[in-house]
């Protein structure tokens, strides 16, 4: 199987939102909230963007406090984290502001404790540096929480929200075309989409099995009939249950 990044509709939506944030009118409103059920490709797409842009990446932690957050940010940036909080903050702002480093906060729900004190620190940083921040919600209802009156200032920094949907049939077909080393007939692609419920993990799993079968039988093109009696995705029923719904 080819190792490459598949530009699904979720990827295109995310990129469009990033372009819109980059072109925003209000410099301080530079946050993008990314949400969606697990296993819809949030991490892969956001991580790929973070790698390409050299963003500083932080994963939210249950124990996060403003001090812990700022120390971790300084550590990731290789900025001296000694001295008073004020000095550390200024060094972090100087580093991020100078390089306009984007910031990614994964599992952002952990930053909502204590009246979102950690997000207040992030707001101070992005207000001063005008850097883009991408907040990835690991659970539902993060946006609803941020819409509460006490978070009005923070919510005003969110320029846009990208909701990751399950991959469509077109996305599955695209993944099959770009990743598989053999040609897949449409009926097999449709079956892979049905069983995987559009989850990339399931699609990749199925392609691996199709390629192994094609290799053993020297097939250049594989259809649904060729895979008769073969399991495409191990325990795909539980995979679909985990998704909750199937489009």
């Amino acid at each position: 199987m080819k190792k490459q990044f598949v530009k699904t509709a979720n990827y295109e939506r995310f990129q469009a939102a990033i372009r819109a944030v980059d072109a925003r009118g209000a410099p301080e409103a530079g946050w993008l909230l990314v949400a969606g059920d697990p296993a819809r490709g949030k991490s892969t797409i956001v991580d790929q963007w973070a790698v390409a842009t050299g963003a500083v990446y932080l994963r939210g932690k249950e124990q996060w406090t403003p001090h812990f957050f700022l120390s971790e940010l300084a550590e990731k940036l290789a900025v001296d984290d000694s001295g008073r909080a004020k000095d550390r903050f200024q060094r972090v702002v100087a580093k991020i502001g100078h390089e306009q480093t984007p910031i990614v906060v994964d599992e952002v729900q952990h930053a909502l404790r204590d009246s979102a004190a950690v997000l207040e620190v992030l707001r101070d940083i992005t207000d001063l540096t005008e850097s883009v921040a991408v907040l990835v919600a690991g659970v539902e209802n993060v946006q609803k929480k941020l819409e509460r009156p006490q978070f009005k200032q923070i919510a005003s920094r969110i320029f846009d929200r990208v909701e990751f949907a399950a991959n469509s049939a077109e996305d599955t077909a695209l993944a099959c075309r770009e990743l598989a080393e053999v040609e897949l007939a449409d009926d097999l692609v449709n079956e892979i989409h049905r069983q995987s419920a559009g989850l990339m993990r399931g699609i990749v799993n199925a392609l691996s099995k199709v390629e192994a079968h094609a290799g053993r039988n020297k097939l250049a093109r594989v259809g649904l009939a060729d895979m008769a009696g073969k399991e495409l995705i191990a325990d795909w029923r539980s995979l679909r249950r985990a998704m909750g719904s199937h489009q």
């Binding site: 190792k3 490459q4 990044f5 892969t44 991580d47 790929q48 790698v51 390409a52």
Partner: peptide
């Protein structure tokens, strides 16, 4: 393989 995909480079 994950790194190759994320970094857009050869394995």
């Amino acid at each position: 393989d994950e790194l190759a995909v994320l970094a857009n480079t050869g394995p």
